[in-house]
Design a protein around this nucleic acid. Sequence first.
RNA 1: GGUCCCAUGGUCAAGCGGUUAAGACGUCACCCUCUCACGGUGAAAUCAGGGGUUCGAUUCCCCUUGGGACUACCA
Length: 524
Amino acid sequence: MSKELANLLFPDIKETPEDYFKIYPKRKTPATRIAPSPTGYMHLGTLGMTVVDKALANALGGVCLFRVEDTDNKREVKDATKRLIEAFKVFGISFDEGFDGEKDYGAYAPYIQSRRVPIYKAFAKRLVEEGKAYPCFCSEEKLAEQHENQVKSGDKTGYYGKYASCKNLTLDEVKENLAQGKPWALRANFDLFNPSDRIAWCDGVRGEMSLPVETNNVVILKSNRIPPYNLAHVVDDTLMGISHVVRGEEWLISTAQHLQLFKLLGLTPPTYLHMPVICVQEGESKRKLSKRKDKEALVENLLKEGYPTEAILEYLMTIYNTDFEIWRIKNPTAPRDEFKFKIEKIGSNNPLLDMPKLDNISKNIIGAYSNAQTKLAVINFFGENLPNLDKVLAVCAIDRETPKPRKDIVKFSDILTLYDYIFDDFVAPRAEGEGAKILARYAELYSAADDKTAWFEKMKRVAREFGFADNGKDFKANPEQYKGSIADISQIIRKKITGKENTPDLYEISRILGEQTVKARLRA
RNA sequence: GGUCCCAUGGUCAAGCGGUUAAGACGUCACCCUCUCACGGUGAAAUCAGGGGUUCGAUUCCCCUUGGGACUACCA
């Protein structure tokens, strides 16, 4: 009867799981995969999983592939797959196999789940043949009502045992329902498992784990004949030879049902690595990073702010492998893929998103950029048409390529506020009283032709003329003899020219601005 | 409510029965210095609580508390 039912349900499916095992040969190396669903722009967590997948494949001497999990057509966002692929490109992340937006590459294609539906059906059909799955004709309303009653009576929720009313439908009843055109979903018969048993496995991150048997006869084929995550995961990761499944902690509990599906199909499950999820602080507690609430933490936004992709990747690595930071200190310039990723160094705490840490990593990375790299990055961020581009680059070049470079740029958008005085529309602040006199005197003296020593001599001269110490030490020794020190003079001038109390070397800035502009601002 | 996970400074964490309890970010102080940044030196700051086990617990076990995840024909 099961065979008959299977043919009734899947008349057009001729292939068997064995056929697919022939098409997709057993893989000889370890493999990891990143399988995001196209529901919008890339999530920081997705990027983090990718970093781990890549690093793990690298450490294991295996491959890492990219698969699109587009089985939820309700949530799917147009172009999201394309955007995902773009984003990976921006981050310089490539995969050994996958989908490039146009076509598949790799021997286990297709890599888009919506194109693998016949494969899922073949496995589903097998399950029906063996009496391990059955069609369910229950309406949404009926299911909702049942759920409500279960909650009310304190019974366990779900579709199982006596609640699984479609499980024991006769062939004729199924035929009748089908004839009436009733929609149906396929459910796994988890009542085949002893509900008091536990499902155990050794998690790569958490160690020995066990969960109670999943009793809910979960849907493995939706009424649109597309599987939800569970069956798709089991089938794809088996066929694609995935040895290590890296996924977020949110999957931990559903591992029982996945393992039960593997068992029902007689398949060997992969090693699971359940990763911590990145959280944000909210009042007293923390919560999972959310796309809606934490827009500023979205990868898209970080990029928009001008964080270098390497900074984001490095930060993610410090989160997911607690060894990485120490390795990085010892190997400050080594490429990241030389780092040996260790499974046992994955933390199991859910970390809080640490923006100051990201900032620190970022400013170190930008600080280490060469002038050429900086130019590329600035143009990449602002485009060719940024006004005063040459001047901006000149300011960025101050102290760059030295053993102790400035590290004032955290993200490229900072340039607009940090160096706003470089732009033509900058308005110099007003000065009054003695300050105005000092500025006037300095304006008289200033010449762009001076070398740095000559320039500084003039600065000292102004200081002396107005009763300020021309060096810090003298002032410190006898503070009462002076109105202030050369630092104060310098500060007055800096403030007038740039509107800021902290800027790179004033001599250099003045040269970049040009004598005319400097004098105009001093006298404004 | 049920199931599961987690628990060392403000944050990320090392530690895996005996340590002066690493390190990084952040904070503060000092030095360097025309300013800022960089750099250097230093400081403050942690084992959630209670029971066991043990000669000895941050480390092992239990309970409490706190936090997190899941509980869909979403992933």
